[in-house]
Write a protein that binds this DNA or RNA. Sequence first.
DNA 1: ATCTCCCGCCACGCT
DNA 2: AGCGTGGCGGGAGAT
Length: 948
Amino acid sequence: MLTPNKYNAVKKRWKMSSTLPESQNLRHKTQTTTSNHKGNVFAEPQALTTTPRKASTQGTVLTEIQSNMGPLTTPTKGKETGAGEPWTPTSNLKMLISAASPEIRNREKELCMDPEGGDAMDPELGEEGEKQISRKEKSLGLLCHKFLARYPDYPNPALNNDISLDDVASELNVERRRIYDIMNVLESLHIVSRLAKNRYTWHGRANLPQTLAKLRQVGEEHRYGQQMQQIRQRSLEKELDSDGEEKENGEVEGGEQGQKEMFFVELPGVEFKAASVNSRKDKSLRVMSQKFVMLFLVSTPRVVSLEVAARILIGEDQVADQDKSKFKTKVRRLYDIANVLRSLKLIEKVHVTEERGRKPAFEWTGPEDIPNVKETTATTATAKRTLESRASVDNCAKNLFSSPGSKRSFTRHPSLIKLAKSIQEDRRKINSAPTSPVKNDSSSIEFFPTKMAQLAAICKIQLDQQSNKVVDRTPKPAVAVTEAVPDHQQKAAENPGAPQPPVLTPTEPRASTVHLTPRAQFTPQPTGAMSFHPAQCSPLIPVLLPQLQGGGPYAIYMHHSSFRPHPLTRPQPTSLAVRSMTFEDKTGRSPSDVTVHGHSPATNKLPTSSPSALKRVCSEIPSRESPSKAKRIDPSTRDTSPKLCEILQARLKARRGGLLSNRPSPRALHLDPEFVNTPGSSVAAAANQTLEQNLETLLEKEEKVATSDSEAGLTPVRAVPLTPQHLNTETLIPTGYLIPISQQSLFSYKDLHSTESSKASTPTYNIYHTPTAGSRPPPIQEFTPTSLSLHRPPPASPFSAPGHRFHSPSPAILNFTLQNLGLIPGPGSVPACSPGTAQTPEHPSSVPLPPHLGLHQKGSMVFVKPMSPVPGQHQMTGPGGQPLTLISLQQVTTPKGTALTQHSFFHTPVSLSPLATVVTTSHGHTAPAGAKTVYIPQRKLEVTTEDT
DNA sequence: ATCTCCCGCCACGCT
DNA sequence: AGCGTGGCGGGAGAT
């Protein structure tokens, strides 16, 4: 029994202490409660530096933990721990063990330290059986607590936030395997990101708001809410009737269900790393975790039962109820995830009592006021899929609308394919790379394999040629879109956003608006906001975002994650980028929920109290103000946080050596066919032809410009239009990546879309080139934060002033501008390129921001979203333009005060505790919400918090 | 009996 | 061959 393990010594050690059954028990028992005393012995090098570990001072930690834990449910043993007691019997055991080796000793000490602090919850356990305790002590949740205790919620970027798996494992005395579980979940929330083998970077909760917003958006896109209801309904029916009808399944139309599986939502700052997900695809824990969180964010009563979650995650719809084994496995995993989430205080265990009986469920206790995606940052959430994972693709295709034809024939330019492959390779390398050098800011810039560069260059050329053609085409798609519209509406229902279709009539042209909100600066001013209508820009619009931390701007690809046949969704050109954005308003509403979130309609409404709300407001405002034109912002003007500038400069210097190598990331190259489908696209569809035409014109112009730019030295990025036909199906490309791109790069994109064809299906693929191979180091200049503010056309143009068109139609331009702008966020108008200038005084950033703010600020992000028909109203609807909104947030440095901020952050979120009760009540309501498709007769659910 | 979920085997992909 | 990862499910503790 013991362990034949392969594992390394560590494990063994571990096992020694923990695993061995018998011995363990004893030990554990002793430990059980405790172990804490010493605590601090080991400080991680990393963690230590930055933050005072919580662990070290248990007090803080404990408090936090307790608070956390308490609610959480997990019964941790905690009291004792709380006590932080020094030695427990277990400790003795450990001692003995440790005696054997010093290392062990150390580990033990460490273990003791942290863990306990938090837990302390259950007196009972602790006392009782050690064994029990032991088991509990070993729980993932506790382990996660310990882990979390070591790092500040809001790490100081300046410090080293690297996490070494080995170190952690040894310090916490756990097997690596367990650490992986935790890291995967944390990574899914972007609390950490993988740098390289054995190395992760700690981001803390800084990205959380963005991540949650993104997840919510994606969840809405996938209509998880509906799915949940369906499942519930179904189950009820079955129970009651015995018949489960499955019709519901079908309802979803899109068959979205299946699709979801593989994507992983990334955040701007974190993307790569995340991307690193290597081999295992994104199948698992990471994705599962995200989906799980999405369910909470989307469901009205923020309660999700394990059963429902498991079903959705399995995608069972397709197959009615799959094996039980599968279900069981899923449930196991969910528990693993839930334990980590509990440690994060994001969820709490509760029980839902239905007619049948009581079922385990979890309630969301995280922040309630999740900023809209847009605002938050646009994180472009991107779901990325690995190209490889065809399976996912297949699923998508299946699920996707029936999009008939196109199954996956994904036509891509050969060169693109190559690129994709190469990219993948790169990723792998990155991932696997034993030591990934890159880290923090600088990391954003990656070295790009020369190969990639070459390919890229080739592709560009080819694409460019094509692109020209494409441009012309663009209009068509738009048309198609319009046509589609009607249908969309129906489908729209499906979409989360859809519900409000009436509001936005697809027919209306929406103005796309770009909002830039420089978080850092806070300037409420609209300065940041920019809107432009990209007419039919290629579906994919790469957006460049400057990030502070990341240093580089990111290009965001929207993945259309789902293929949901959204009525709306059409393959519009712009759609891609947009997609994520689209929902924002919609997002608010969960499918069923009309009731749920106020947002949807109200979304725009200002969030009252929550800081997030403020953010939103700010972002919104700007957007409104600067309508379309803003986009044209001077390239020169950019604001970036000073830091960014600096970073950039540094990078530039560094890079200048090799242009090619510089390529921000291989990923930039990715093309996702999927994007096409994105719901956003549907929105895009709405855009009027006229606009399109205009846009086209603009685009052409822009292209020229772009070229010039490129000539200038910048490599323009282009979007290559793919053949439309295939679009639908192909989901090959991992969507949703954010790619850091050198700012300089421009995009010229083109659309090819044929388009007219089917609405949703219309497949236009756009491919973007990443900035060609040699992305250059962006000139620092651009970044200067300050400059932008002025430039922005404060345009008064209200969002959608119908009349206005965007001057800068072409996506390329947008990108370009975005880059600049995004960076720009700073109110300061100084365009100064010089980095130095960049650091504008303006940024209040220095000022301690409220924690939440800090979060937002973090990265400047740009979202491009097509407005969903509904919500978008205010925002955009330009006459013809598609509604796009870009939001850029700058990152300011994350607020340093980690500790404080932390608290605030979580606290801010509405106190959920009461939620449970609320939930129950609300619960009933929610059900109905799903109006359209499903109504689920819901039974009331009672939620009981479990606490022990 | 059911809920939880720890443990670690073992596969996968990279070095 | 070895290593880092992490999917997966047996089986046992907790309820």
